[in-house]
Design a protein around this nucleic acid. Structure first.
Length: 219
DNA sequence: CGCGTTTGACCCGCGC
DNA sequence: GCGCGGGTCAAACGCG
């Protein structure tokens, strides 16, 4: 399964992080979004291009169709990679990112104090955003490689929360994955930070195409 | 052997 | 100060 900058246009509906951080507790002050989940198959051409292309990752096997809460006109690739692929959507992206940074600033600080006792370096807040997918699989293939570094049972939830880190050596993006106990078919994924490198699978897909275009442009 | 997962221990913030 | 809960570490383990 591969990301496409065009097919991915239209991004994921942002969930209020207070709800996210409340471990889906019922006392969350923000009511759930009124509209139903949009039925957008996650591995459909609309969201992912060239699902049959070869891949080295074992996680690239086709996922069952997912329903994803999305907002139109947010560029998902730009949001993840920090690159402005679709400039017209930038204001919305920035607002979304800043919103998440604002909401997640406290946790960001909390989560980065390990091994730094005595020298409290106030870390710049990192953008966070979350979305829900309706899937049997906890892990959706977003094109990046992740390494799991922890799993915790969280209060008020029947399902543990898993912690992942981007395996790219210079990248410090993390994500949390948790299945809702209220609706076990829904997986909540929270991203923290912005990738400072291109999506590997996207580049794998585009590189041969770009080479071919370069070759053809010589004529 | 390299890479990813598992899991218990540990750290830290927060509320009481 | 203490206990709780969330987040992270790191050794052990599994797998290709």
């Amino acid at each position: 399964m591969f990301l496409s900058p065009y097919s991915l246009r239209g991004a994921l509906r942002l969930i209020n992080l207070q709800t996210m951080d409340g471990q889906e507790s019922n006392q969350a002050p923000v009511p759930p979004p009124p509209q139903p989940l949009l039925s957008v198959p996650f591995n459909s051409p609309f969201l992912f291009a060239a699902p049959s292309l070869p891949s080295s990752s074992s996680s690239s096997s086709l996922h069952p169709p997912l329903e994803t809460q999305i907002l139109p006109d947010i560029d998902w690739v730009s949001l993840l990679s920090g690159q402005g692929v679709l400039g017209e959507n930038k204001p919305m992206i920035e607002s979304a990112v800043s919103l998440m940074a604002e909401n997640g600033a406290d946790q960001d600080e909390k989560g980065n104090k390990d091994k730094r006792k005595g020298s409290r370096i106030k870390k710049a807040s990192r953008p966070r955003f979350a979305f829900q997918t309706r899937s049997a699989d906890d892990i959706l293939d977003d094109g990046y490689r992740w390494r799991k570094y922890g799993q915790k049972a969280v209060k008020n939830s029947n399902y543990p929360r898993s912690y992942y880190r981007c395996t790219h050596h210079t990248c410090n993006v993390k994500k949390q994955v948790q299945r809702l106990s209220k609706d076990t078919s829904i997986v909540v994924t929270t991203y923290e930070g912005i990738h400072n490198h291109p999506c590997e699978k996207l580049m794998e897909t585009l590189t041969p195409l770009l080479k071919q275009m370069q070759f053809l442009s010589r004529f």
